[in-house]
């Protein structure tokens, strides 16, 4: 058997990074897989279900907290449909505290 060729990035973590980098052109982007900490509870089926995400981007200027989160949720819709269970989001503009 040959190794299957996968055109999309292999892990959800790398897909999330790629989508957010493309969509928000962030000055800072940190994506951490936090699934292990949630292992064993109802939503944690398998791996790559829980992520911590930090995005610092001008794209959030003028948006409320809910609007920022919705923008990220929408960008990651395909991941939510395929088993992404929880995101812990920190979404800042460069001008905001801890946004630099």
């Amino acid at each position: 058997m040959s190794t299957p060729v996968s055109p999309a990035p292999a892990t959800r973590l790398s897909r999330i990074e790629a989508v957010l980098a493309e969509r928000f052109a962030p000055l800072r982007l940190v994506v951490e897989d936090d699934s292990a900490r949630h292992a064993g509870h109802a939503g944690a089926r398998g791996s790559e279900t829980h992520f911590n995400v930090l995005v610092v981007s001008d794209a959030f200027s003028g948006l409320s907290r809910v609007q920022r989160s919705r923008a990220v949720h929408e960008a990651l819709d395909a991941e939510f449909r395929s088993g992404l269970h929880a995101l812990s989001l920190v979404l800042r503009t460069p001008a905001e505290p801890s946004g630099g």
Binding site: V66, S69, H73, F80, L87, S88
Partner: peptide, 24 residues
Amino acid sequence: NWPTIPQLYVKGEMVGGCDIVTEM
């Protein structure tokens, strides 16, 4: 139009989930 639980509503308005409530 929010893909995760929990969700907090105050006087009919969606405030957010755990991250937003914690930050606020």
